[in-house]
């Protein structure tokens, strides 16, 4: 698809970006005295719809649906957006493997709207019909089922599928013609590797475990990162400082929630150059990520409000906005 073919879609996205929440809107939301007031604030700004009840989950679910309705109306190649959905597709694979291997039904933990519906996914795993899965899922599905059946280790199953997710994202980035997909894939995989290193260091995991969990990426050497994690948190901070992730290192020093916030902010910073790109699919991908980030931030604020956290505690968790 020629880049200028996106002229309609990009211009429409520019008009839609006006209604994205800015940092000041988020501040207004934080200032609401409780979650009910916050929900009213969201409704006044067009969140949810007339037939959606004044309930946080219902409103946020409707907002996610709106993202894909809008993108669908633009008649662009939807395959470009697959990389953004890999985490939900692989999450469903994980849920299906666990449901089949443990016999416990997890009906509510499946994402809706994935290319393979829940029932079909469970059938594939049950009948070991792995060829019916997308190519990038086949090996991981087989390995995860074997691992869970033989060892009963749910964490190992998670590690296998999570690594396959990251590898699929990175591969999609390599194959993509659009720079934004490539940058998004690299940032996502790098951030995931850093998260693994931090968590593995805290829980004293072995070097083998970390190497099995981490997926190769261009900006980090996973071998060095795993060794740094083995040596402790200070070594991770030192490694990140020397490899272009100084902000991540700073956030790690600050607090766990600051680190989690940085992980999401890193993705937003990756997509920010798309604000000045008039052509290509980049602004569309950036809009989807920005909307997902916005919804995630609103969810965090509403959850904090429901649990009575102070405004300062909420601010510490709030993600950077795209606009």
């Amino acid at each position: 698809m020629s880049k200028t073919q996106y002229a309609y879609a990009v211009a429409r996205i520019r008009a839609l970006e006006v209604s994205l929440f800015s940092a000041s809107t988020i501040e207004q939301l934080i200032a609401c005295k409780d979650d009910e007031t916050a929900i009213r604030f969201l409704q006044e700004r067009g969140w949810g719809s007339a037939d959606v009840p004044a309930d946080a989950d219902a409103i946020l679910t409707r907002e996610r649906e709106k993202i894909w309705e809008t993108i669908g109306e633009m008649h662009v190649d939807m395959d470009v957006f697959d990389v953004l959905s890999y985490t939900s597709w692989f999450h469903n694979l994980k849920a299906a493997v666990k449901e089949v291997c443990t016999g416990k039904s997890g009906a509510n933990i499946f994402y809706e709207g994935t290319p393979i519906p829940k029932g079909e996914l469970v059938r594939i795993i049950k009948e070991k019909d792995y060829k019916a899965l997308p190519e990038n899922m086949q090996a991981a599905a087989e390995e995860a089922v074997d691992a869970l059946l033989h060892s009963g280790d749910g964490q190992l199953c998670d590690v296998i599928i999570d690594r396959a997710t990251m590898e699929a994202i990175k591969e999609a980035g390599r194959a993509a013609e659009d720079e934004i997909i490539c940058d998004y894939a690299e940032s996502t995989v790098a951030v995931a590797n850093i998260k693994i290193a931090v968590r593995a260091s805290k829980t004293a995991k072995t070097l083998e475990f970390m190497k099995r969990a981490m997926a190769p990426c261009d900006t980090l050497n996973i071998d060095s990162l795993a060794h740094a994690a083995l040596a402790g948190m200070d070594s991770i901070i030192e490694y990140l400082n020397g490899n272009g992730y100084a902000e991540g290192a700073q956030a790690l020093k600050e607090s766990p929630s600051a680190f989690e916030r940085w992980c999401d902010n890193r993705i937003i910073q990756t997509i920010k150059p798309q604000k000045s790109n008039p052509f290509s699919v980049g602004p569309l991908v950036a809009y989807v990520i920005a909307r997902e980030n916005e919804i995630k931030t609103v969810r965090i604020i509403l959850t904090c409000k429901q649990n009575g956290l102070s405004d300062d505690s909420i601010r510490e968790r709030v993600r950077e906005m795209y606009v």
Binding site: A7, Y8, A9, V10, A11, R12, R14, A15
Partner: peptide
């Protein structure tokens, strides 16, 4: 095309 995109929303 771009103008149509903007007018669709506004």
């Amino acid at each position: 095309q771009a103008a149509c995109g903007v007018v669709t929303e506004d």
